[in-house]
Amino acid sequence: MSDDLPPKILPEDEDEALAAELALGLIDEDEAPHIAARLTADQDFARRVAAWQERFAGLADELVPVMPPARARQRIREELGHASAPLTHPIDSRIRWWQRPFALIGAAVAVVALAAVLMMPAVRDSQKAAPVYQAQLASDDAAMQVAARLDGRNIEVMLQSGTVPDGRDWEIWWIKPDGSAPVSLGLVARQGAMRLTLPEGLEVVDGIRIALSDEPVGGSPTGQATGPILAIAPLTPS
């Protein structure tokens, strides 16, 4: 921890440093009420804080976007009372063409959802008939072998050889061919198989690949693969 500047901060720099600390959330609880009061009373100080917020937000560009689970949006809609089909009217004549269909799509989704509930046994039957896909993942030296199998929307990932090291987890990623950020499917089970239903928004199309990355226990803390990619393989019809 070396620094060649003098240890004291000049008084005129005090506000600047304080503004940065406030933007970072580094202000002590004791100081907080006093500083919050300054924000409303002191436009110059408020401007400094906003400028720091703007600068620091650039750091979030380093984070790879992670698609939240579909249920997150549903929960937000429920909390806001938007759970039923949107009822908004066009606010003015300048409303964009692509904003209009939302109400219709919402209604259509509700109808489809109802139909899906009513026709559940039929859906199950059709899933049985759905094609089965698989991906065979292996490390370069073939010491690790993992098989992924997709039947309808049910995925099973099985560790066939190799051992997940203590203190690490192997995370499973779904990679779309469109170059969007990989979506995590979960972690390789240390014993037995990892099973899940394919999350909404993920569809089987040509060119899907499955990858494994080495991650801290519990999976990538950032939602993107942080560790080395151990293996990657295409998902192909079996």
């Binding site: 979030a60 976007p65 698609m67 997150a72 950020a181 950032t222 939602g223 993107q224």
Partner: peptide
Amino acid sequence: TSAKLYAV
């Protein structure tokens, strides 16, 4: 915006 905010 949700994918970026979820990443944050």
